Amino acid sequence: MVNFGQAAVGIIVLLVVAVGFLYLFYSRTNAVGKTGYGALAMLSIVSIMIPIFWIRETGFEASQKDGQEVIAITSGMQLYAQYCTFQCYAVRNSKLVDVKYNGYTIDALNQLSDQDLQRVVESGVYNPKVPAPTTAGAIPMSQTYGGALDANQTQYMIQFIRSASPAYLKKQGYGSSVKNGFGGLLDYVQATYPTQYQTAVNLGTNGQFGTPVDDTKSKTVALDMVNPPAGAACTPSCYSPINITVKVGTVITWTNKTSQAHTVTALSGDDPTASPKPAPQIFDSGNDPAKYVKTGGTYSYTVTMAAYNLNPDHRIYYFCRIHPAMLAELVITK
């Protein structure tokens, strides 16, 4: 951008010098003296104008750089809306929440080196700690690896992700016109992909596990560990039902109906797709292989007030320590 402060100072200095030389010029009656002072005045004016033009040119180049980055970020935002469709974000209270790309949070991606981020976007590396989509083509990647993104689009996607990092934008020297591209995502998705927008609203309302089964009238509830149904993200097994609503005091019993051992372990936090952090103080069938829930085995837990108070929305997520892609949810009421 043009530095108006520097430009103003330069113009003032130019005027002062010009006035000074005009005074000297007209105060001299000698023609030779006037000629000499005139030449010196012209040389001085030219010398002062050079840095002024340089400042202006530098500002123009910075403006061009910012403009190109804004175009790249906008293009990346449109590509993100088009290709990142599997639980990439949710809408809660008309705000964008739980934003991810290939299962990674945007903050986590911006901690990566440029080379590693390039690898994630280009080759479609999916976060191994969370369930990946089972639908073919649901993971965006470059054409080199069988995806839809060409080389330019891959770079746009990277620049869009980087735009969420104020530290990165500052390091690159961008001006105030270069902003976080995610700020315009919701309006664009709502206008361009209304069905996708509604899916994000539903995800924000009910979470990734859908509408919970209402078991609030039951004092005991039976859940199973089963082989995943077609299209399910949980692997190699699933808890079923995957989401229930229960009251404090309800006794829940999980039965393992698969051929593999599993655990039933509560998670802390309100984002089960982030790095899983067990909350064994709430419930945990055990981290010792001797306590794993083996085929035909069961694990029971009585819902407590501690579970109700763990998260502000009174939801608890749980998983299998052995198979972290096995995730489920409890909604707790009093």
Rank of each mutant, 00 (worst) to 15 (best):
A7E: 14
A8Q: 12
I11P: 00
V19I: 13
Y23M: 02
S27C: 00
T29W: 00
K34R: 15
K34G: 03
G36K: 11
A39F: 09
I48A: 04
I52F: 05
R56T: 15
S63R: 09
D66L: 00
Q68H: 11
V70C: 01
G76F: 05
Q82K: 14
Y89W: 13
N93A: 13
G103T: 13
Q111W: 00
D114W: 00
D114R: 06
Q115T: 15
Q115D: 15
D116H: 05
V120F: 04
E122W: 05
S123N: 14
S123D: 13
V130A: 14
P133Y: 07
T135K: 15
M141G: 03
T144D: 03
Y145C: 00
Q155R: 06
I161P: 04
L169P: 12
L169H: 10
K170V: 11
N180G: 08
A191R: 10
Y193V: 04
Y193G: 05
N206A: 07
G207T: 07
Q208M: 02
T211A: 11
D214S: 09
T220F: 01
P236G: 03
C238K: 01
I242H: 05
V246K: 06
G249K: 11
V251L: 08
N256P: 14
K257Q: 13
S268M: 04
D270F: 00
P272D: 08
T273M: 09
K277R: 10
A279S: 12
F283D: 07
A290E: 08
G296D: 03
G297Q: 12
Y299K: 02
Y301L: 08
T304F: 00
A307I: 06
N311L: 01
N311Y: 01
D313M: 07
R315N: 13
Y318R: 04
C320W: 04
A325W: 11
M326L: 03
A328G: 14
T333H: 14
